[in-house]
């Protein structure tokens, strides 16, 4: 083979190697940017830190293995689709386990946290606050909001998090959830109504200011 051929092949190999490295770095950056929020979503949906970690890891793995070569703009909707799918899977499996557990008297505790610890948001401290009492009230109110979010029906919770927190539009949320745009609007409206009722009933808005 002509030396030029070897040279071209080596150049192409270097280019491809560089592209793979770039892709890996871009994926690393993307996953690093979404992992905290993904974990928080999974934690809210499952009420269990260990399960949430498993779900997030699974979603990361699936994205990298199957969709790493897709355009970067598609990663976010794909990742959320996988994540929400995994969360729904988890709930389905848990329903089956509870059904079997109910028959054989081994039903797992609802929302039990295996590590026995408080949720992460209850461990959040803000030493910069100048008003400890007000800060305490705010923190308690914040916990109540998160608790209200945690208690929303799964589909309402997922739609609320994707639309309101992640900022996905209706179409992207519907794609991530695998449902119609009409369902997204309905779920969001119901989620907002429930949260609003909860805030008003418990006077949480007054503490948050």
């Amino acid at each position: 083979m002509a030396p030029g051929g070897w040279g071209r092949r080596a150049t192409r190999a270097r280019t491809e190697g560089g592209a793979v490295l770039d892709n890996r770095l871009a994926l690393d950056r993307f996953l690093a940017a979404v992992e905290r929020r993904a974990y928080t979503m999974a934690r809210l949906a499952t009420g269990d830190g260990e399960e949430a970690l498993d779900i997030v890891q699974d979603a990361m793995l699936r994205l990298v293995q199957r969709y790493a070569d897709r355009p970067q703009a598609e990663w976010a909707p794909l990742f959320h689709r996988i994540l929400q799918h995994r969360i729904r899977d988890w709930h389905r499996r848990r329903r089956v386990r509870r059904l079997w557990g109910g028959w054989f008297g081994r039903a797992p505790a609802d929302g039990a946290d295996e590590d026995g610890g408080a949720p992460p948001w209850e461990r959040v401290a803000d030493p910069a606050s100048p008003e400890p009492l007000r800060e305490l009230a705010r923190r308690e109110a914040g916990e109540q909001i998160l608790s209200a979010l945690e208690r929303l029906p799964l589909r309402q919770q997922q739609v609320f998090l994707l639309r309101v927190w992640e900022g996905l539009d209706v179409a992207a949320t519907a794609a991530a959830m695998g449902c119609s745009q009409g369902s997204v609007k309905t779920h969001l409206s119901r989620a907002l109504a429930r949260l609003r009722q909860r805030l008003e009933r418990e006077g949480i808005h007054e503490n948050l200011g």
Binding site: R37, Y39, V164
Partner: peptide, 16 residues
């Protein structure tokens, strides 16, 4: 509701 929820969620994610 949206604003307060987002604030708390951001805080939760930042405070892991």
């Amino acid at each position: 509701v949206r604003r307060q929820a987002v604030e708390q969620l951001d805080r939760a994610a930042a405070g892991l």
